[in-house]
Design a protein around this nucleic acid. Structure first.
Length: 569
RNA sequence: GCGCCCGUAGCUCAGUGGAUAGAGCGUCAGGUUGCGGACCUGAAGGCCGUGAGUUCGAGUCUCGCCGGGCGCGCCA
């Protein structure tokens, strides 16, 4: 028997259940207990986890779904499929022998399936062999995805308004990677625009002891930059004929960008590509994009400006690409960027944008379509607004008021783990409140500590076992006849399908909910079963194996979220 | 006015068309001579904004309305 790869070992249990049902359905048709399937009904069977444990570990509605196309009562279809499931010899099931200990038909036509303890034991042993790979999947359709996020212009440090996009973007990347896809994290910024000139003028003004201009930047970091401004840059800026604000601005924005990179690193976010708007023009990507559109008849001239006919594809209005004075718009860079990204070979482009940018979604996707790209491969994930609150009062984000909070300050207050958990456990599209005081409190008010505590507690048990001279058994061998252990084993083995769902939905709430549930299951197990018991080393060894599998699942889930899994706390 | 997002327990939020709608916090009542009490058990608390529709089945899909947020530049 060839040894399965870790990715195979970590495959979702649910897919085995699906495969078994599919095989049983095919068998029932072959045995003429059911008529041939019409082509349109040939999708894989739906499998869900019932809310009520009496309905088994998994339930399928395939009989209900097939009732109409097969023109048979759902109960009759369910009976036919179940007969196939039952008649298959324990090791004759294509998806793996002895998968189920019970298969039942329940009105109005559900098929309820309960997993076999023996099969679960083998699966759990395999998960432990997979180790850190348990929960990392092999994608059926591996894609190389470009995820562009944060993308704040380097005119000042990241503030809490940038926080959600940074976390959501990174979490999306992690979940896609967990689902077996390849990801490039990309940061897009402008280091040559008027904003950068304003920054340069502000720094220069302070350096020369003048007031910051009206449209300049006023934060403390500007004063720091003025102090640090090197003599040679200052000399170059003040040389005759030099564009002083621009020269200083270039230097300052690079310094700010380095600071942003460092802040993001503290969040556990590292970008693969830093791309500037300027290079999209200098490298000719914008021209290439416009030519492509022009060739397709999507460009016209009016009032001296160059327009993209976005309305032809359903947008509200056409969009200017080159202004009447010849300067390109921001949108021009956007379309050049599309060509650049696709030329680099990505299968899919994802943009993490604030919800206030939703108005620009249609034009960019339309431009992609007009240039001959598949619109479905260009997707914008809109991140809703966060109200930052301290003890119930909203924190104003005005830079002028001085209440401006940087990302670094937020992290210093609440910690990376708590912040990551907070954003991971909420859908990106929902507006949320972030109570800084609440997030700070290290108690059971904050579920991240609850989960980390479970991990630390297991680590402590493992230490205790080692000191006692008991080590984890290689195989669970019979342990799952104990119902308490059985329930926990099932919880552990859910991880791969939780990851699968997260990658498919591109949301992480399922992972945090899962980790909380697994921690709860463990704490209950801890209450009901003693793990380390010198009087029963055989049972101890098996329980240690099971508990270690819980630790593994918690650690892998937290790792996927970029959250630490402490050995003690 | 048009477009996008949102409306679920006192609060903050989950809930891939399935069976009795969940979690954390908060409130109330309990629990440890054993491996970590940052733990455990229980209770109260819901016309899932609202009205229709689609179907075997709707918190979930469609449409209308009500309420909230955000957009609607030759700005970035």
């Amino acid at each position: 028997m060839s040894r399965p790869t870790p990715a195979t070992l970590a495959a979702p249990v649910r897919s085995d259940v699906r495969a078994a049902l599919e095989a049983a359905l095919a068998d029932a048709i072959a045995a003429r207990r059911l008529p041939e399937l019409p082509a349109e009904a040939a999708s894989p069977p739906d499998v869900a986890r019932p809310a009520n444990p009496e309905h088994g570990d998994y339930a399928s509605n395939l009989a209900l779904k097939l009732a109409r196309p097969l023109r048979r009562p759902p109960l009759a279809i369910a009976e036919a499929v179940v007969e196939s499931l039952r008649s298959a010899s324990p090791d004759g099931l294509p998806a793996g022998g002895g998968l189920f200990v019970s298969v039942e038909v329940a009105p109005p036509g559900f098929i309820n399936l309960t997993l076999s303890p023996r099969w679960l034991e083998r699966r759990l042993d395999a998960a432990r062999i997979a180790g850190p790979d348990f929960g990392r999947l092999r994608a059926a359709d591996p894609r190389h995805v470009n995820v562009e996020f944060v993308s704040a212009n380097p005119t000042g440090p990241l503030h809490i308004g940038n926080a959600r996009g940074a976390f959501v973007g990174d979490l999306l990347c992690r979940v896609l990677e967990g689902g077996g896809h390849q990801v490039t994290r990309e940061y897009y910024f402008n280091d040559s625009g008027t904003q950068v000139d304003h920054l340069g003028a502000s720094v220069l003004a302070l350096r020369e002891g003048r007031e910051v201009p009206e449209d300049g930047y006023k934060g403390d970091y500007v004063a720091d930059l003025a102090r640090e401004l090197p003599g040679d840059v200052l000399a170059a800026a003040t040389a005759p004929g030099a564009q002083a604000a621009r020269v200083v601005g270039r230097w300052a924005s690079e310094r700010v960008r380095e600071g942003i990179e460092a802040s993001l690193a503290r969040l556990g976010v590292r970008f693969d590509v830093w791309r500037t708007e300027g290079t999209l023009h200098s490298e000719g990507w914008v021209e290439r994009a416009v030519e492509r559109l022009r060739a397709g008849g999507h460009i016209y001239e009016q009032d001296g400006a160059t327009w993209f006919r976005s309305t032809a594809l359903g947008d509200d209005k056409d969009r200017v690409v080159y202004r009447s004075d010849g300067r390109p718009t921001y949108f021009a860079a956007d379309i050049g960027y599309l060509v650049d990204k696709f030329e680099r070979g990505f299968d899919e482009l994802v943009y993490i944008w604030g919800a206030d940018h939703h108005g620009t979604v249609a034009r960019v996707r339309n431009a992609a379509e007009a240039m001959g790209y598949d619109k479905a491969r260009v997707r914008m994930l809109l991140v809703a607004w966060v109200r930052f609150v301290r003890d119930g009062r909203e924190i104003s984000m005005s830079k002028r008021s001085g209440e401006f909070i940087t990302l670094d300050e937020l992290l210093a207050e609440v910690g990376v783990d708590a912040a990551r958990w907070f954003f991971a456990s909420r859908a990106a599209s929902t507006g949320i409140d972030f109570d800084i005081e609440l997030a700070k409190r290290q108690s059971n008010e904050n579920p991240v500590y609850y989960v980390q505590y479970a991990h630390a507690r297991i680590a402590s048990i493992l230490r205790k076992a080692k000191a006692t001279g008991i080590s984890a058994a290689e195989s669970l061998g019979g342990l799952l006849d104990d119902e308490v252990a059985l329930g926990m084993a099932k919880a552990v083995l859910r991880l791969p399908e939780v990851v699968e769902d997260a990658a498919a939905s591109e949301e992480t709430q399922g992972l945090t909910a899962y980790a909380t549930e697994l921690a709860t299951t463990f704490h209950a197990f801890y209450r009901d079963r003693r793990v380390v018991d010198a009087d029963d080393p055989a049972t101890s060894a098996r329980r240690l194996a099971l508990v270690d599998a819980v630790r593994l699942s918690l650690a892998n889930t937290l790792a996927l979220l970029g959250i630490s899994a402490p050995e003690s706390m």
